Amino acid sequence: MAFNVIKPGILALVQDLGRHGYQHLGVTTGGPMDELAFRWANALLDNNENAAQIEITFGMLTLEAQAATSIALTGADLGATLNGCTIYPWQTYAVKKGDVLSFKQANYGLRAYLAVKGGLQVAPVLGSCATVLREKLGGVRGNGEKLQQGDIIPYQATHTHRSRSVPRLAIPDYTSLDIPLVMGYQSNYFSGLDRANFFGSEFKITPQSDRMGYRLNGRPILSNQQGIVSEGIAYGAVQIPNDGQPIVLLRDRQTIGGYPKMGCVTGFGGGLLAQKKPGDSLRFQSVSIDQAEQKRHLDLARIAQWR
């Protein structure tokens, strides 16, 4: 009663909603890069919202089911097939013993989420099975490794299946260039011109981007502070180092940092950003805390109402 990993792909990780309550010890949260897609995958199967899934980045993953179950796919379209037949994200599928599930390359987006009925049965480390490679925590073996060929990922078998799909209005537009950001108190460290350049320019995602943070390249944004006293780092914080090129800190971020910050991208904005690849462009869109909270409440309310 498990998935057998035939091909591990480029980067496939077991994730839940993250490891909370340990940042004071220097342990980051981890968790899904696209939280909304993760939550919808569990909702489609009536799973607990924190049930473990596989986050598939770039694709090239092949799994063989060793027992019948029901699965849900959300997030990016990575050219998934079930026994050679094309399947699409944002809906559920029945899987039988011996079925082969494969992911190719991205048609759109970057990260897909594979949930199984009842969740993957992976032992937690510090209260979570979220995989953080840098900290060697979580995952199938608890040591932070990505999925490897021959790995066995247990789940509870079921012959019950319901065909379901996410309402079209609830599916994010991964082609959008606009990433919502709430300005922080350190935005005063930047001149009015630099703030205008920050929101009026397009930035490109560099190849030096990963789950820890996205490094951007564009018109330099200069601060009148060369550095600050190191402080705690929130999810989505946009640091501006001395070269003026923004860094958006994401799920596997360090817990403290000492560069001035323009603000934080929202949870929804971070999910949109996580679906972009190196070379893609983006713009920052200033939103208020109220607007960000309203958007999050709307997304969560949609899921709760749908459930």
Rank of each mutant, 00 (worst) to 15 (best):
F3L: 15
V5Q: 11
R19W: 03
L25R: 08
T28P: 06
E35L: 05
R39M: 09
R39Y: 07
D46P: 07
N50C: 01
A51H: 01
I54D: 06
I56G: 01
F58G: 02
M60A: 15
T62S: 14
Q66F: 01
Q66Y: 08
I71N: 07
T74F: 12
Y88M: 10
P89L: 04
V95Q: 01
K96I: 00
G98N: 07
Q105G: 10
R111P: 04
G118M: 05
Q121M: 12
V140C: 13
E145C: 08
L147S: 03
Q149R: 15
G150S: 10
P154N: 05
P154K: 01
A157C: 00
H161W: 14
P172N: 12
I179Q: 09
I179P: 04
Y185A: 08
S187F: 03
S191I: 07
G192T: 15
L193E: 15
F198I: 02
E202A: 13
I205S: 08
S209R: 10
M212T: 03
Y214H: 11
L216R: 00
L216Y: 04
N217A: 11
P220S: 08
S223W: 04
Q226H: 09
Q226P: 14
I228H: 01
I228D: 01
I228G: 00
I228Q: 06
S230H: 07
Y235R: 00
A237L: 08
Q239F: 10
L249N: 07
L249H: 07
L249K: 00
D252W: 04
T255F: 02
G257Q: 06
P260L: 04
C264K: 01
V265C: 05
Q275R: 06
L282T: 10
S286I: 07
Q291V: 12
E293A: 14
D299H: 11
I303A: 07
Q305R: 14
